[in-house]
């Protein structure tokens, strides 16, 4: 799959807009008290936002004038990445209610199934061992309260 030639220009324009929004937002950061010789809470964010705007404009211009190489990255596998990321967020979303001990093995099996497009129970044994070992170390030895869900 070939990429759109000017994808970096598009990116540059997007980042420029993002910088502009940040610049606007940072303008609101007016403190309630004045301190002598102070540059204010808005100064640094605004400075960085301006830098972002300048740099992204530069990136877009260089790309439009074909002074930089186009991105050659292939996005053929992006579907699998999107699905994996989706499962990551689903994992995060259900974790507090369902609990780590149920959700983590479920999540691990699903991700393995996606990456290999088949499911072998033998692969899951080391994964499950690690999941339970990690749970044990964090929950019992280090007393980090891992979300227990309805099992807890």
């Amino acid at each position: 799959m070939k990429n759109f030639r000017y994808i970096n220009s598009v990116l540059g324009v997007c980042l420029f807009a993002f910088g502009f929004l940040i610049f606007r937002e940072a303008g609101n950061y007016v403190p309630e008290i004045e301190i002598d010789g102070q540059v204010g809470a808005h100064a640094f964010p605004q400075l960085f936002a301006v830098a972002l705007m300048v740099l992204s404009a530069l990136m877009a211009l260089l790309d439009l004038k074909k002074l930089t190489k186009p991105t050659t990255a292939s996005f053929a596998g992006i579907g699998a990445v999107a699905v994996t990321a989706g499962f990551c967020y689903a994992f995060w979303y259900f974790l507090p209610e369902v609990g780590f001990l149920i959700m983590a093995p479920l999540f691990a099996c699903t991700v393995t199934a996606i990456t290999t497009r088949r499911f072998r129970i033998m692969d899951m044994i080391p994964v499950l061992l690690v999941v339970f070992a990690v749970y044990f170390v964090f929950a019992n030895l280090l007393k980090v309260p891992v979300p227990a869900g309805f099992l807890g």
């Binding site: 994964v127 690690v130 990690v134």
Partner: peptide
Amino acid sequence: PMILILATI
């Protein structure tokens, strides 16, 4: 999956 679980926790 191992790294993802480790990263989460």
